[in-house]
Amino acid sequence: MATSLLPVSGQALDAQSLVAKIQKLCPAAQLRPDCDRPAVKVPLAHWPVLAQQLFASADLLFDLLETHTAIDWVQTGQIELVYVLTSLQCGHHLTVFVDVARDNPVAPSLCAVWPIAQWQEREVFDLFGVHYTDHPDLRRLFLDDDWQGFPLRKDYADDFMLERPS
């Protein structure tokens, strides 16, 4: 079971009851058994509501969005958004996966739930080109403002890149 370094006030749930609770809140959420931490896959349409519930519901209390990143699956045409959540009050962790279409990657911004998402969503926008609706300031973060393309997409290429000689 996951442990927290911080003083814990709530009750940490084990993986099974955590996933069961989440599936009760959102029946469309599926368990991802291939992860070493509790992880669920959530359809995009259900995600904003579930995020709010994860944050607010008394026995889950996911108060920290630890990191947000993405995976580009070129073959299946999906960009998989990854949210790593922690509850500092209870000491449990959860990873949430959400698929968006690669050719129209639009997702709702979670700034209203976790304010830190502003920065993390800017980074994912910068490198993967995912557009977040209702984000207050969706600009490039690491790359120059006039950069063309999204370099962490698997099919990204530009003239600057060097091929490895074989």
């Binding site: 790359l143 370099p151 890149m161 060097l162 091929e163 490895r164």
Partner: peptide, 10 residues
């Protein structure tokens, strides 16, 4: 970061 890097100066 010599190869396949979009941003590292060589």
């Amino acid at each position: 970061f010599l190869y396949h890097s979009y941003t590292t100066i060589r």
